[in-house]
């Protein structure tokens, strides 16, 4: 996983609540057996006027001129600004892979759906929660200033705006550490392999029926 320390990027506003993972990456693209290549189909149904299928050359498709990511002022955006309950719906990690593949390393919203929130951290993407008032101010600032960019300083837990405003944010200490160091969760867990084995041995004694008829 790529480390996340500070991120400086253009902010793109996606001004609707309950953005679901079906909207972030529609189902026809979930047939891929790889983790990469989802970026061109991020928000496919909003972003293009024609219907997307896997394997299409997206450069020949009809972009929806009204969709926010197609506006020239938001090209090369690295930070996505959203509304309540961002990432709700299916558990598909493809949603995070699509955001990352497109170029977003951070999503800022007043609230996130749990599974999406979790999936972000596993891929070096920072889901950042700010209270609704701060989000409203950011939407207004982004609308008002073409090319609006911010810096997210994860070690300091601060956002720096062009107006020199500093917005502090909260992040779980363990997840922050994993992001900053780019740590692989599995390797960390396997450091506790002996504890897992001991737990399992006890469980076999306490609940033997879980083991005597497993899926052999």
């Amino acid at each position: 996983m790529e480390k996340f320390t500070t991120l400086d990027g253009i902010v793109a506003p996606l001004d609707r609540p309950n953005v679901d993972t079906d909207a972030i990456i529609p189902k026809q693209f979930l047939k891929s057996i790889h983790r990469t290549g989802f970026g061109p189909n991020l928000f496919d149904e909003w972003r293009y006027l024609d219907r997307g299928e896997p394997g299409m050359d997206n450069r020949t498709r009809q972009p929806n001129p009204e969709f926010v990511l197609n506006l020239s002022r938001y090209q090369d955006a690295g930070i996505l600004l959203g509304r309540e309950n961002f990432g709700c719906g299916s558990s598909r990690e493809h949603a995070v892979w699509a955001l990352l593949d497109y170029g977003f390393r951070a999503v800022i919203a007043p609230s996130f759906a749990d599974i999406f929130f979790n999936n972000c951290f596993k891929n070096g993407v920072l889901p950042l929660v700010l209270e609704a008032g701060a989000i409203n101010k950011l939407f207004a600032a982004v609308e008002a200033t073409p090319g609006f960019r911010m810096t997210i300083d994860l070690p300091a837990q601060e956002i720096h705006t062009p107006e020199q405003e500093i917005i502090p944010f909260e992040v779980d200490a363990f997840r922050k550490d994993c992001l900053i160091r780019g740590l692989d969760d599995i390797a960390l867990t396997l450091e506790h392999a002996a504890a897992i084995r001991a737990f399992e041995a006890q469980r076999r004694l306490d609940a033997p029926w879980l083991y005597d008829n497993s899926t052999e």
Partner: peptide, 11 residues
Amino acid sequence: GTSEVEHVLAT
């Protein structure tokens, strides 16, 4: 998510 699927498979 899929990263967690891998995590459960491995650990």
